[in-house]
Computed example of a mutant assay.
Amino acid sequence: MHYIYFMLAAMAGITTITAQGQTRPAPQSYMCNRAGKAISIDGKLNERSWKKAAWTSSFVDIEGDKKPLPLQETRVKMLWDDQYLYIAAQIDEEHIWAYQDRKDQIVYLENDFEVFIDPDGDTENYYELEINAINNTFDLFLPKTYRKGGKAQLKWNIQGLKSAVSVNGTLNDARDKDKRWFVEIAIPFESLSTEHVKPVIPADGSEWRINFSRVNWQHDVDQQGHYSRKRNAETGKVIPEYNWVWSPQGIINMHYPEYWGKLLFRDEEVGNRSNADKPRQVQ
Rank of each mutant, 00 (worst) to 15 (best):
D65W: 05
K278N: 13
E258Q: 14
I251C: 03
K177W: 02
V76A: 03
Y126S: 00
R24I: 13
H226C: 13
T23N: 09
L8Y: 13
I252M: 09
K37G: 12
H255R: 02
L79N: 04
N272R: 10
W50G: 01
S49A: 08
I252L: 08
L154H: 07
K278M: 12
T145Y: 00
G169H: 01
S40G: 12
H219T: 09
V165P: 12
S57C: 12
A98L: 01
D277F: 15
S206M: 11
N135G: 06
Q100H: 14
K237F: 14
I39S: 06
I39K: 02
I201E: 11
K44A: 14
L171R: 01
I106N: 09
D61S: 04
N253L: 00
I210C: 10
E114F: 02
Q90I: 00
E269V: 15
P202D: 09
S49V: 06
R231P: 13
P68E: 01
D82R: 14
A53L: 05
T56I: 04
D118P: 09
K162R: 11
M7T: 15
E93I: 00
A174W: 04
I14H: 12
M31C: 11
I134C: 04
E241K: 04
S191W: 05
T23G: 05
R231M: 14
Y84L: 07
Y127P: 03
E110G: 04
M78E: 15
E195Q: 06
D139H: 03
L140F: 11
Q249I: 00
I185Y: 03
H95T: 01
D222P: 04
R280K: 13
N157C: 08
G43D: 09
E94G: 01
